[in-house]
Write a protein that binds this DNA or RNA. Structure first.
Length: 934
DNA sequence: GGTCTCACG
DNA sequence: GACGTACGTGAGACCA
């Protein structure tokens, strides 16, 4: 369990009462009572400070009582009836508890109808199921029922005491499992649990210890010698049974927030500092900002950073120093007998973690067949298990491999063991391979995603590149084993000795990478985005890729033929107007024809000094009446559509599934967006009518429809929230047309022309504007462009502040963050070259907005399957993501229900982590093909 | 392999 | 005054 998760559940409600009674009546700087809040704050501080220490929390939540009335009142109307009202000067402190918790960026959980104790019990139950350790921060005796040695303990922060079952036994004479029976017998004055009159803690423990259970005590009441005790047990047996039910903790209610979302990493400094200042808690404030921070004196490398991590954020990111390692490939083992396999699995199980890599005969995981699996448990301790190697006639060792079915059967137990963390590099691929074998791998860490969350923008995240970067180690190149080009062989043909060296090395490096990167997640304050946004997405994306989307091949073929005919016609006319044939697809030749042979005016552009023939130039010429330019534009459009879409897409249809399986890259775009490749399904045409036809090729299976749900104007909404622009926020809340509104602010009226201009300006703002760029787009002078930008800043002052602050932060730190903490690095932000620097600045202005949008849709995706399942919509399948759009296959007749669930999940994606000032509107449509779903 | 062009958000 | 010029992608065609 050394590397397992450890959930800390803080019993906030009981803590505050104890803090109130224990601390002097302090007041905050507004003169309001704040003693209990102060005590509470120091307690959270202490807990957060133990983050990443041995046995410290990896996950944490504060649990509060939401309401007075619970199911126990239904059961027993006098429950807690005699409880006196809380002291007058404690009452105003209750809401501050939530404020304090938020300041620490720790999730705060409460649920109507449930007491804090029950919510805690539910989380304990779930965490145990997931193989996590749990510590309940409380000293409440009812909660001691949950203690289970090695799995669940309690922490009494006031007395600095761990509560285990020995402690419970010492105090109550029975273990945690019998404690409920003792509590039922003895009753509780404060909660008004009746118990059995005349029986206190001592007698209760004695009885339970002697008879074993409450029911046994009641059954044997007649035999009890002490007459008074005997009579009480007989008279109050019903009270005892009622009490038993009242002290029973509910552990099967739905969790208000999944446990994975409770990941605790660092504590961002800003909100905490603001809270401490607001309350005037000077001592803590000094600890936060001064040198004597709570973690000073401790090593800042590796783990152990939490509150201090906040101050790390103000130092620019430095590339990590490589760590010298020695890889000894001779230590790797080829597993070809059952006994060795069992030994490796046992070792991984005992350790609770294992690096895994699969080797196959093809890079496309959908059609790939397994060649072997490698495992690593410690540096230099790795093995390769061949299962699909062929060529027995070529290599004498090939027949030695274990049967694939046997290996998979044994590995299934390991891969599905919730107490064993599986570590992979780009695990999505391996996940699919195991999924095809009926193995549901969980839990998973992905070192590629970790590297991306830590260092996006600094370098790539491939295993070989990272090995070189972090360890100065050169991995065996794939080419060396399999060759290239025509003579390339597949991995299942590689001799076992070489295959073992290559495959085991990958697992070995992955494990070492994990050891190096994992502690940095907390130290760099990205564990939250990793744990809550990107990591949960790995299996979600894997499933989407495996499902694929159905494409109508005949329809595409028909389109191809139509485009072909049209292209031929256009070619003839182009040659005619250009006085002779040439390669239209060659920008070079086209440039010569237009600006040489036809003598038109044009600009040379780019490094190569070639004439530009892009769409802007051709549009300009076409506007001047040059027919040839118009024809070339049409030709370009059609040949693009044909080659990239109608032809290429047909070739991408998987013969087995009849569907197209894209690959989504999790570490693709610097901003945190996904990228789609092989084929790219995120750039299917929609903007022109003719291109749109290609969307009609994307269809649903018979009996289903395709449903599309997209966020409306999400980036502008986020800009309104993040830059805090009141007019924009109001407009979005009122459902106004945002471009019309901008047009009115900028130009005084909103006719069609002004609206289009305003739209361009709105986008320009998101992308990091320059007056020249805007002028170019709008076809106006640079001065006019500047005037419009100035006016925009004047009307929406928040935008200018946002841009300035973002750039200042980026210059100081070398990176930006999204609202969910995702980092994007900009090594060029202080470059001497103004062009490079300017590029980095514009990207830095855009990254927090584009990245937050990416975070939001990823959060929605991570929750989607569960939400659909909960609504009984298992038949609804998420297929594609296109940045602000999700595409589903939905059984006919279930469209309305599915739309409601999808809309709800997407529009509430920010919650509960964030409360946005703007609504996230989602537009949903469906039809027999993608084209009809918009 | 680099460059250009263009498809998408 | 020069620097180039909207942010983020992937893919196909051409050309050396």
């Amino acid at each position: 369990m050394a590397d397992g998760n450890h959930l800390y559940l803080v019993d906030g409600s009981s803590y505050i009462f104890r803090a109130y009674h224990r601390l002097p009546p302090l007041t905050n700087r507004h003169g309001q009572p704040a003693g209990a809040v102060y005590g509470y704050t120091t307690m959270l501080w202490k807990l957060a400070d133990s983050l990443n220490k041995a046995d410290g929390p990896t996950h944490m939540a504060v649990i509060l009582d939401a309401s007075e009335h619970t199911f126990r009142n239904e059961m027993y109307d006098k429950y807690k009836a005699h409880r006196p009202p809380p002291p007058e000067d404690l009452v105003p402190q209750f809401p501050l508890i939530r404020v304090a918790t938020r300041a620490f960026s720790i999730p705060c959980i409460e649920e109507a109808g449930l007491e804090a104790d029950d919510i805690i019990a539910c989380y304990v139950h779930e965490a145990k199921r997931a193989g996590w350790k749990v510590t309940i921060v409380s000293s409440d005796k009812d909660l001691m029922q949950l203690v289970e040695d090695g799995k669940v303990d309690m922490l009494d922060t006031m007395n600095d005491r761990r509560i285990d079952s020995a402690y419970v036994r010492e105090k109550f004479g029975v273990g945690p499992t019998e404690l409920g029976d003792v509590l039922a017998l003895m009753g509780d004055k404060v909660d008004n649990i009746p118990g059995v009159a005349g029986i206190g803690p001592k007698t209760a423990s004695q009885l339970i210890a002697e008879y074993g259970s409450l029911e046994a005590v009641l059954a044997n009441a007649e035999n009890i010698t002490k007459p008074k005790l005997r009579q009480s047990l007989i008279d109050y047996a019903d009270d005892a049974r009622l009490s038993r039910k009242l002290v029973e903790l509910v552990c099967d209610a739905a969790l208000p927030q999944p446990i994975e979302e409770l990941a605790l990493t660092g504590i961002p400094k800003e909100p905490l500092q603001e809270f401490l200042e607001e309350q005037g808690f000077k001592a803590l404030l000094n600890r936060l900002t001064g040198d004597g921070g709570p973690t000073s004196g401790r090593s800042s490398s590796g783990g152990g950073l939490d509150l201090a991590a906040a101050s790390i954020a103000s130092t620019p990111a430095r590339p990590a120093e490589p760590e010298a390692i020695s890889v000894d490939r001779s230590k790797y083992e080829t597993v070809t007998d059952e006994e060795s396999l069992d030994r490796w699995i046992a070792e991984a199980t005992a350790l609770g973690r294992v690096a895994v890599d699969t080797e196959t005969d093809c890079i496309d995981c959908i059609i790939a067949r397994l060649a072997g699996i490698s495992l690593a448990t410690e540096p230099n301790r790795a093995c390769y298990i061949p299962v699909g190697h062929s060529g027995a006639d070529l290599y004498s060792d090939a027949p030695n491999q274990l049967p694939m079915a046997l290996v998979l059967e044994k590995l299934k137990v390991l891969m599905e063991d919730s107490a064993v963390l599986k570590i992979g590099h780009n695990f999505k691929y391996d996940w699919v391979m195991f999924d095809k074998a009926g193995i549901d791998t969980d839990p998973v860490d992905d070192t590629m995603v970790m590297s991306f969350d830590l260092d996006a923008g600094l370098h790539g995240h491939g295993l070989d590149e990272l090995a070189k970067l972090h360890f100065e180690h050169e991995c065996i190149p794939f080419k060396q084993l399999c060759g290239t080009g025509k003579s390339q062989i597949t991995f299942d043909k590689v001799p076992l000795k070489e295959a073992t060296e290559y495959a085991a090395e990958d697992a070995d490096i992955t494990l070492r990478l994990w050891q190096r990167l994992k502690p940095r997640l907390a130290a760099d304050n990205v564990a939250r985005v990793y744990d809550r946004v990107d990591r949960p997405l790995v299996p979600v994306i894997s499933r989407m890729e495996r499902r694929g989307v159905k494409v109508d091949r005949d329809y595409l073929a028909k389109l191809s033929r139509e485009f072909s005919e049209e292209i031929v016609k256009l070619e003839e006319r182009i040659y005619e107007s250009a006085c002779g044939p040439f390669t239209i697809g060659s920008p070079q030749q086209l440039g010569e024809v237009l600006y040489g042979r036809l003598g038109l005016k044009g600009d040379r552009k780019g490094k190569s000094g070639q004439y530009s023939t892009d769409v802007n130039e051709l549009e300009r010429l076409a506007g001047e009446g040059i027919e040839c330019a118009r024809l070339v534009l049409d030709w370009r459009q059609l040949s693009k559509l044909k080659s990239t879409y109608t032809d290429a897409l047909q070739a991408q249809i998987n013969p087995e599934t009849g569907r197209v399986h894209t690959s989504f890259s999790l570490a693709g775009a610097q901003t945190g967006r996904l990228a789609s490749n092989d084929p790219n399904l995120q750039n299917i045409p929609i903007r022109t009518e003719i291109g749109r036809k290609i969307r009609d090729a994307f269809v649903a299976e018979p009996g289903n429809v395709l449903m599309s749900a997209d966020y409306s104007q999400i980036e502008l909404r986020l800009a309104a929230h993040m830059a805090d622009v009141p007019q924009l926020k109001t407009a979005f809340r009122d459902g106004a047309d945002i471009h019309n509104m901008t047009a009115e602010e900028l130009f005084g009226s909103a006719d069609r022309d002004n609206r289009n201009k305003a739209k361009t300006v709105n986008f320009a703002i998101l992308y990091g504007i320059s007056s020249w760029g805007l002028a170019e787009r709008l076809g106006i002078s640079k001065e006019e462009g500047k005037f419009i930008i100035d006016r925009y800043f004047e009307r929406f002052p928040g935008i200018r502040t946002y841009i300035e602050q973002t750039l200042q932060f980026a210059r100081e730190n070398g990176f930006t963050r999204t609202l969910f903490g995702r980092k994007t690095h900009f090594p060029n932000i202080r470059a001497g070259n103004p062009s490079h620097r300017g590029g980095a600045e514009r990207a830095a202005v855009n990254a927090p907005i584009q990245g937050t949008s990416a975070d939001l849709i990823k959060r929605a995706m991570a929750r989607m399957d569960r939400a659909l399942d909960d609504a009984g919509l298992e038949g609804v399948k998420m297929l594609l993501q296109v940045h602000d759009e999700l595409v589903f296959e939905v059984p006919e007749g279930r469209e309305e229900e599915a739309a409601a669930v999808v809309r709800e999940v997407m529009s509430s994606a920010a919650e509960p982590a964030l409360k946005l000032d703007v609504p996230l509107d989602v537009e949903v449509g469906w039809g027999e093909h993608w084209g009809a779903a918009h």
